[in-house]
Design a protein around this nucleic acid. Structure first.
Lengths: 215, 215, 215, 215
DNA sequence: AATGAATGAGTCTTCATTCAT
DNA sequence: AATGAATGAAGACTCATTCAT
């Protein structure tokens, strides 16, 4: 993988510094707008060094997006630790997702650049990583369904539906609505959860309405 | 507005040809990657002509995004004509949205480029246009709520929630899931609708599950 | 000559308007910087019309410099009318020269552009015109010499010396010294005249100094 | 100053080569007409290198004019070394000035371009340099006046008068007269000196004329 | 005769990448 | 291993000139 250099003589601190400034710079200027010289300067290393650690601008960008995904994943899974129940887990994950991008807007821009510049051309390693990530969520959903907490939705599709909502929310939803990402995310996740929950009686109003219908 | 030139001596056909090739080229290469010369060549006009009709690359891009939004809007509103009920309208809109981008993938890329390159810096004219668009949907939601069809959700936020889902679905959801945009969209819109509907008994499975609980 | 179009159907007023705006524009932007479109717009005619009256940008520039020289000449010779004596005539000419450029700074810039862009490549017609101009001054000098008013200097060289002083004064002298062209010109012309006059006793101070030496 | 780069890693030889070709190219084609690619090619370096040493075309031009002024100054002051007397010094300076431009016609064109393209907008550093140059001459004049060699002229104005004559002579005078710059300069400087000298008896002819008058 | 839309050659400038030190 | 000087391909934009109307 381009993001892992087998060479024995690399300084992880230097690598991290470059990556950090790459995130910052790609976020600020976009992939095409970012200048390798600027990244090198900001990281306090020579331009040649950047090329030693990351073979090309494109490779550096992939390493950058990978770094962002890894950080995001850590945050999201950390938020799910100790949380019981599929809905609660999903909610926690959604909130963490929004929280992460709200406090790391540069990571969001890297995400956007990734999609804009390279559509679906990410390295296979990234795609594999993604698949594993989504599989974990699929498992959560599946368990929720088996436990009767969730309707028997198509877990595979629904995971990507959840991803769509989160992505759309942080990328454009909160901007268009001029609302904080967190607030938009809570709103949207709640709608999503209500949409897949088997038990909706917890919602007082809806319950009341349904009771009325029964009468 | 950059997209509307008052000069009487412009050839609308030529303008349209340039715009068409601009969509194609921006979609293929991105804003930064697109070459004005290539757009001119593809449109069969001189480079100077492109600059006559659109003052700069940026202006041409704005005209392009505006064109895409207008086309999208037409398609979506056409799909809602004659449809009764808030849910049905929203569903029709969502399906049309996905359908539009599925059959016009270049328009989708323009959308993505817009967000990637210019975050929230669209010309005020565009922003105003957006506001009006969303207001129409807000009205649909509001009427659905008043009619008792929808739960009393916050119409403003929910409209942007809907937009988030649709955007996320066509931009990444269907790609990540390797599923057609239409299928993903139907799935996601249904979850969204269930999430805001007051009456959920129409869903056979859920009804059954709930009935079981009541017993 | 490029500046005189034999075609029977030309509107002198339109020609003059174009010329006027050409002076203004070449003065402001320089030969290379001036835009034929701007000249046309300022003159209130179509660009094609400019090309009808003046075959090319270069031709228009030559017509412009010619116009400036003609105006300058008129002013200078008008100032010499009725003035008696070579020194007085020369002085009047010098003052008028500076006055002209001080009140027509655009004409000065055209002069400078002429030299900068085309060195000595002016059309033969211009050069002939110049020669005649200088010949008139040579005659004045010659007469002054014959009348004993001036030292028997080389009239030919001295005429060009006078031209050098005036040109240098208005083009850089007054700017470098941050003084009005008129004031600089008076100063310089006086030194020049003293330099060529046979009778210097009119200068009180010098006379006194000389008297002292004699004692 | 644009002409002095503090960076330690510049090759003075390369810098000089670029500057040399810049003088040549600006002289031949003018500021606007000169092509950075041509300058790079002539200097035998890549275009990027030209931009490394001189940030922009304008900066390169300023460095060029500065170089010319420095060379001119060296030549002029060298010519004045060991020369006694204000008149003799001024004469030596004037001759050297003309000689310099006669043997370096490209430097003259750079001078002309400077005035044509940038009127009085030279960087402050250049202007300061100019001021010091002229101050030195002012001192020479002042000393000549105090020594009784020169009439009590306004030294400030007269310095700029001298500059005007020299500039006018080399820029247009010698061209119009079709005479070598040196010859024109000698002629003009002599007239100028006679114009400011207190003692004019050294001039045989004038002395004779004056003697005749006295009788 | 007058117009101005169309053209495309021409130019400055940037920046990813290389490689000698 | 680290550096950053050097390179030159690439691209946005301008403007003199033409020519159909």
């Amino acid at each position: 993988m381009a993001t892992q250099n087998g060479s024995c003589s690399e300084d992880p601190g230097k690598r991290q510094a470059i990556l950090e400034q790459a995130i910052r710079t790609f976020a600020e200027l976009g992939f095409r707008g970012a200048d390798m010289q600027m990244i090198a300067d900001r990281a306090g290393v020579g331009k040649g060094t950047v090329y030693r650690y990351f073979h090309s601008k494109e490779d550096l960008f992939w390493a950058t997006t990978f770094e962002v995904v890894v950080r995001l994943e850590k945050r999201v899974f950390k938020a799910m630790v100790g949380v019981e129940g599929a809905c609660a887990k999903i909610r926690a994950a959604g909130i963490a997702y929004a929280e992460f991008f709200e406090s790391n807007p540069q990571c969001l821009e890297v995400f956007v650049q990734d999609r804009a510049e390279f559509r679906g051309t990410a390295p296979e390693s990234h795609r594999e990583y993604h698949r594993q990530l989504f599989q974990k969520f699929e498992t959560v959903l599946q368990q929720g369904i088996e436990a009767g907490e969730l309707r028997p939705v198509d877990a595979y599709q629904t995971v990507y539906g959840f991803a769509s909502i989160l992505y759309g929310t942080v990328v454009i939803g909160c901007h268009l609505a001029s609302l904080p990402a967190m607030r938009m995310a809570e709103h949207n996740v709640d709608i999503f959860l209500r949409g897949i929950r088997s038990d909706v009686s917890l919602d007082a109003e809806t319950s009341r309405l349904m009771e009325n219908r029964k009468q």
